[in-house]
Simulated scan of single mutants.
Amino acid sequence: MGVVLAGGKSTRMGRDKALLELAGRTLLDRAVDLLRQAGAAPIVVSGHHPSYDSVPDLWKGRGPLGGLASVLKARPLSPGRGLIVLPVDAPGLRVSDLGRLMDCLTEDGAAACFEGHPLPLGLRSDKGTLGRLEAILRDPIQKASVQRFAATASLTVLPAENVDLRNLNAPADLQAFSRMQKGDW
């Protein structure tokens, strides 16, 4: 399964990042296509995106972890199934980057990410995956984060060199990315 996290408020960008366009394609279209090319099936989008198989956030305001928990509650994974979780705002990722994550998932409960970046995340589900997500989200004291969730799994951290992990969070990020990538699209 592939999950595109696209349910955020996009407050720094000032508009829905999923609908931003680069070279005539939305970031959401790009993320879904990337997961498809990487072999993920089915592909589910967190947030309200009726053009796709999407799941509205049940954990509103809880960030990427809330989006992931919402998707897994609505579309449960069987134990041992692989999952790629991709933020909608990282258009520099390649199929080979996602393949590296999935190659690390050799046992139930395994997870993989790139050094210094909790997303994208490769995950191999086990019986307790959703329970661990929801326990973190219900904790009123500690921050609900993908990093905290990943620490509950058998995590492999991959070197991040030659992987474009930039997130487009503000208009200046989008402009800079567009200028740098102009000839590559």
Rank of each mutant, 00 (worst) to 15 (best):
A18N: 09
D126A: 13
A23I: 08
D29I: 02
P56K: 09
I136M: 03
A172R: 11
S70P: 09
R15L: 12
A18Q: 08
E115P: 01
D108V: 01
N169V: 14
K182D: 10
L35T: 00
R138M: 12
L35I: 10
L83W: 01
R100K: 13
R36N: 11
L158P: 03
A111I: 11
V85Q: 01
A112P: 01
L93P: 08
L28H: 04
Y52E: 12
R179Q: 14
A112D: 03
D173F: 14
P118T: 09
V44A: 06
M13N: 08
V44E: 00
P76I: 00
E161H: 15
R132F: 06
V95G: 01
T11W: 12
V157T: 15
K9Y: 08
P79Q: 01
K182S: 14
R124W: 09
M102V: 12
G39A: 10
A151I: 10
P50Y: 11
Q37K: 13
R62V: 04
N162I: 08
E21K: 15
G61I: 13
N167M: 15
F149P: 07
G109D: 03
G61F: 10
G63P: 11
R12S: 14
L174R: 11
L77G: 00
P171F: 09
D184P: 00
I141Q: 12
D89N: 15
M102G: 03
V44H: 05
T106G: 15
S54E: 03
L101I: 07
S70F: 14
F114V: 04
G39D: 06
P64K: 11
F177I: 11
L155A: 07
G82D: 14
A112M: 09
V4S: 04
L119H: 00
G80N: 07
V85W: 00
L86N: 04
R75E: 05
P76F: 02
V71G: 01
L65Y: 05
A110Y: 11
P91I: 07
A151F: 07
R62T: 09
R81P: 00
K73T: 15
R94G: 00
